[in-house]
Design a protein around this nucleic acid. Structure first.
Lengths: 342, 342
DNA sequence: CAGCGCACCACATACGTATTCAGTACCGAT
DNA sequence: ATCGGTACTGAATACGTATGTGGTGCGCTG
């Protein structure tokens, strides 16, 4: 097993200089076609690959993006929110389509990620993904911005955050879902999920919910909102709290599918029929939504589109092209849990 | 925003030479403690980070592992098998614990991954993950091996593959599951999942199944085995085929949870009660298994352990330490679908 | 035939770190 | 006073690619 071939080896075999090899292999203009073909043929023959480290050093680009997942420190080790999981796949693909590699890492909100990836030139830019208390890392975003780091965040587009954000139309999605429930004759709709601005996406969904109520001439009852983070357990707990509160309700809008699924479990345990007695609508359209019983009506965020948009926005930013934040459409997926005629 | 600081900048400020800075920051012995502290302090102050590209170029190591997912070309874009998804999390963590970065990529079985990652020095080694027709990429493994590439594969440990393999005890898991069903009085156990050696893991599970039958004095009926790849659709189709075959059966051992869940759906559609009429056992213990109705009895593969073992084995291999393939234990998780008393 | 422009290519060097080798200063022992 | 050894440090260089600058040969124009 001999030494890995370098561009010098090829140069020697081709009878040209190393710079010419470099130019030829990178498709630069101004290389004699005959020479280029000779070089390419030799490179193929030697199974030559450009040394990424040397190339990165010289060009000062790594052609690599870093994907950072944020998570509550409480989260179980190996679990990722299913929606992010779907997005992961599309991000990987989008990176490949743009000839970039993808570095992936988990981060606790508390660690010092903000000084790492781009400073050390491991990546040209960063994609930030994660639910969680937004206030906790706002200052980190600011630091990133100040350091001139290229990054894109998935989240609530409306919030006055630093940097670029890609997110779906949470407000519109919440509004659509609630309007659908109203159209079905439900009048007492509970909202499960934090309404605090610390969770901007849930907050937006809640505001959309309220907007639809208002449009429908319904006066919101504060007693129908219960906090929950996006786990089944939290959803079940919130639904239990709702039941225990004695408030009258005939529908639940959950801020995420996991919450909705947990709530449906709690309802089932309490002997309440979905959708006959209580209609349930979720948010995300994770795979489990269609598997739930009854299948869950939900607001779909398109992970394919989301991943692609994140990558394209980030690469645009890196290339100093004029890119902005992006708001992606949502779509209501009607299944059985809302009691629609099907 | 000024230029990124280099080790020369620090050297100048500290009144030492650049090599001393390099030595100090990497914790080499033989640097005066006072000098070291001065250097470290200046580095912190400048927010200095070692330039990965330069470091990689010089050391000829990238401190990076590549994770390659293989998938059937037919698979939907953004989906990863849930079990691999769980492993992904633990691999990411294990990499972090060992101070390695993780590059991630999808690969079609047909593409030329075998010449890429390590040749270009993007990664020091490769983790291969994926179900799929094993024969298709056997030759690629051979090529990797011949090229001296460091890699570890997740899969069937028994198969005479090139290179290192980490996998769970598929044979033992299949045997345990079948024995449990026999203990519960089931005598006509169908096996859903390919029994071909092209799918070595399923093959091992099937052999375990047969071994348990033999031990229990049951003569296997070939008509009770139906091929299926690891999707719900395939599981449902296999169950439908089983039903259509007219074979008598009172239990199903599925080669994966996805197959089992699909099969349960098909059984439910046919009005067959689980577990009363037919007991069902799966394999993997994906999150959906505990959510299924009834909750699915299954053979757990521990993704935490699996991920850690893969990473540690690979790093050991890279460091030329004496590491070997590893067989990880499985554990039967008894839930309702098998009809155990609970 | 002088002069010009074009197409192509080589020389030299930069990128930032890690490592080899050769010191230098200092101490204690002879 | 000399030597040997220890502890530390600096000069020089390698790693492999990409790029700025300048030069060569050729064909073409006038």
């Amino acid at each position: 097993m001999q030494r890995k071939p370098t561009s010098f080896d090829i140069a020697q075999l081709a009878g040209v200089s190393q710079p010419t090899v470099s130019r030829a292999l990178r498709g630069e203009v101004g290389v004699n076609p005959a020479t280029r073909m000779r070089i390419e043929s030799i490179a193929r023959q030697l199974n030559y690959r450009v040394d990424k480290a040397a190339s990165n050093l010289r060009t000062r680009h790594s052609q690599t993006l870093a994907l950072l997942f944020f998570e509550d420190p409480t989260a179980d080790d190996s679990l990722i929110n299913p929606f992010f999981h779907s997005m992961l796949g599309s991000i990987i693909r989008a990176c490949a389509e743009h000839d970039h590699d993808l570095l992936i890492s988990f981060q606790q909100l508390s660690s010092d990620w903000h000084t790492d990836y781009e400073d050390s030139r491991k990546a040209d830019g960063i994609i930030l993904l994660g639910y969680g208390d937004y206030e906790l890392y706002r200052s980190r975003l600011k630091a990133l911005e100040d350091a001139g780091t290229h990054f894109v965040r998935w989240g609530s587009v409306q919030s006055e955050a630093s940097g670029l954000t890609v997110g779906c139309d949470n407000h519109g999605g919440g509004k659509d879902a609630t309007r659908h429930l109203l159209d079905l004759g439900r009048r007492n709709i509970a909202f499960l999920g934090s309404a605090s601005s610390h969770y901007p996406e849930f907050h937006d969904r809640y505001r959309g919910h309220l907007a639809a109520l208002k449009q429908g001439g319904i006066i919101p009852r504060p007693g129908l909102q219960f906090d929950a983070i996006t786990t089944e357990e939290a959803g079940a707990a919130a639904a239990a709290a709702l039941l225990a509160s004695g408030e009258k309700f005939d529908a639940i809008l959950a801020a995420s599918d996991l919450i909705a699924i947990g709530a449906m479990r709690a309802l089932a345990a309490a002997g309440i029929a979905v959708p006959d007695q209580v209609a349930v609508v979720g948010f995300d359209d994770i795979p489990a939504a269609s598997q739930a019983s009854p299948p869950l009506t939900t607001v779909m965020q398109d992970p394919r589109l989301a991943g692609r948009k994140l990558v394209e926005t980030l690469i645009g930013r890196i290339r100093e092209q004029p890119v902005g934040s992006a708001l992606l459409p949502t779509r209501l997926i009607v299944r059985k849990s809302c009691g629609s005629a099907t």
